[in-house]
Write a protein that binds this DNA or RNA. Structure first.
Length: 475
RNA sequence: GACCCUAUCGUCUAGCGGUUAGGACACCGCCCUUUCACGGCGGUAGCGCGGGUUCGAUUCCCGCUAGGGUCGCCA
């Protein structure tokens, strides 16, 4: 059972932090999203900060699904969360197993584990027995009572001080409405327990040591603390992190651009860039660096350093940062992200030889900041029909380039069996040099780009050639 | 209405009594580049307001203002 020492003077002792355990107890934090079919970018950041703290302290990161609201709770909705966290690389130590994201509590598949960890189930929909016992415990203690078919908790009338690792001590007085009746419903008249109750019970039963969550929960924390004490245990330590706001400073709602984590996946952001950007919202390495690998953040991150004020989401900066990551990432990683992005845009690279695909992608790396921009820039490499703009071809098909283009087309037609390509390849008879594939695709790009976008872009490839020349000379 | 949190360039931030208030994104010039991208140099731009405390406040305290949050048989 969780029983944190509560010696007041010890709460902010610096020695408590930077340690792998607090007072000898291993850190256990959790991310407890509700499956709404949507993972909010703010929720993702909350998960990230929990994960960072767990990894920093060598503690345990727990994923718990708060699916008490049966109406909007589906397996697909749970998978959105799991996939989102996996995409960001936030692995959890306890919680649902990927691939078996939810097992119906009525018909669990025999012998097939759906979760890992010793404090399960990790779906609230499967924990109703626990809640019932705990409510009975409160009733037995005279701290809860029936009221018009519901069950209400007898809230303390005393001032509650919320010790917060980020905000400091917060003294929460009752609002005027609460003064009328401080007690609150913990079980609805339909028998369903409410959020405040199940959240506390689960944190208690799962031995959570630190509750790291959005600041929107700060005011409610008084209720949670009262509940913990009613159960006879001291509450965990709290750390309320500031919220992420829209660029105009308003609250980010589901409909706002970029509110969903899925947006970033679909728009072609690299997850490592998103993670890095999110780290910098409310936390700073304090050394004027912007690009900080997440493993370094794990080393440096700590709760008391988290800023107290809300941050506005700056899409421009994320865009820039993504460009940084794209330019710096390995070619292999680039292919890994580029190929699915091209596929989403309708370009199937699997029809082409692997070496060709890589050579083609090599000419694109670092040119665009988002993978979603890749199709427009380099999609032409992966279409069947090859058409040249005569004007551009006349300009760019120099004697040097001709052989390179021939090489490109030849190599490609061998794999696709395209007659058209074969015929075109005859335009550029001659040399077949293995080392000029990258250069040849550049030349092809040069000619091809003249077809659709006008003369202004016809020179793009030749500059790329220079870049590639330079790169090769450097190596 | 009550309660809680917050306040440095447009945005993200460094700063924790004495600094020419630093960095990054964005923006504007110039350079590099026969295109794009990258890169280099420079520039515009900030301590919300009013009281204190202090020899001295961006920094500490109070008030105001502004923004955000909470007060549900939502989570």
């Amino acid at each position: 059972m969780l029983a944190l020492p509560m010696a007041e003077g010890d709460l902010y002792s610096p020695s408590d932090f930077n340690e792998s355990s607090i007072n000898g107890m291993k850190v256990r934090v959790r991310f407890a999203p509700s499956p709404t079919g949507f993972l909010h970018i703010g929720g993702a950041r909350t998960a990230l900060f929990n994960w960072l703290y767990a990894r920093h302290t060598a503690g345990t990161f727990i994923l718990r699904v708060e699916d008490t609201d049966v109406a909007r709770n589906t397996q697909e909705a749970v998978e959105v969360i799991l996939n989102g966290l996996r995409w960001l690389g936030l692995d959890w130590d306890e919680g649902p197993l990927v691939g078996s994201s939810r097992c119906d509590d009525q018909t669990p598949q025999r012998g097939v584990p759906t979760s890992k960890g010793a404090h399960g189930p990790y779906f609230q929909s499967q924990r109703s027995g626990i809640y019932q016992r705990r409510v009975q415990e409160l009733k037995d203690k005279g701290l809860a009572y029936d009221h018009e078919g519901a069950v209400k908790f007898k809230m303390t009338r005393e001032l509650v001080v919320i010790p917060d690792l980020i905000v400091g001590d917060v003294t929460r007085e009752l609002t005027d409405r609460e003064r009328l009746d401080p007690d609150f419903v913990i079980v609805r008249s339909d028998g369903q327990p409410v959020f405040h109750l199940v959240n506390v019970i689960d944190d208690l039963e799962m031995a959570i040591t630190h509750v790291v969550r959005g600041e929107d929960h700060l005011s409610n924390t008084a209720k949670h603390i009262a509940l913990f004490r009613a159960f006879g245990v001291e509450p965990p330590k709290y750390a309320h992190i500031p919220l992420i706001l829209n660029p105009d400073g308003t609250k980010m709602s589901k409909r706002d651009q970029g509110a969903s984590l899925t947006y970033y996946l679909e728009e072609g952001y690299a997850p490592e860039a998103v993670v890095n950007y999110l780290c910098l919202l409310g936390w700073s390495p304090k050394d004027n660096r912007e690009v900080v690998p997440v493993q370094e953040v794990v080393q440096m991150f700590d709760l008391p350093q988290v800023l107290r004020h809300n941050a506005r989401f700056d899409m421009d900066k994320l865009h820039w940062m993504n460009g940084e990551y794209v330019r710096l990432m390995s070619n292999e990683r680039f292919y890994e992200l580029a190929i699915p992005a091209l596929k989403r845009a309708g370009f199937d690279t699997s029809k082409f030889p692997s070496a060709y695909v890589k050579a083609a992608l090599d000419t694109c790396k670092g040119k665009k900041r988002l993978f979603s921009e890749l199709a427009d820039y380099g999609g032409f490499y992966f279409v069947e029909e090859v058409i040249y703009d005569t004007e551009a071809a006349a300009k760019d098909f120099t004697s040097e380039n001709r052989c390179l283009i021939g090489e490109l087309l030849e190599g490609n037609s061998e794999a696709t069996g395209s007659e058209g390509r074969r015929a075109r390849a005859s335009d550029a008879p001659g040399l077949h040099r293995q080392d000029c594939r990258a250069k040849s695709v550049s030349s092809a790009r040069s000619a091809r780009q003249g077809t659709g976008a006008g003369a202004a872009r016809t020179g793009a490839g030749s500059n790329q050639m220079k870049t590639i020349y330079r790169t090769q000379n450097l190596q």
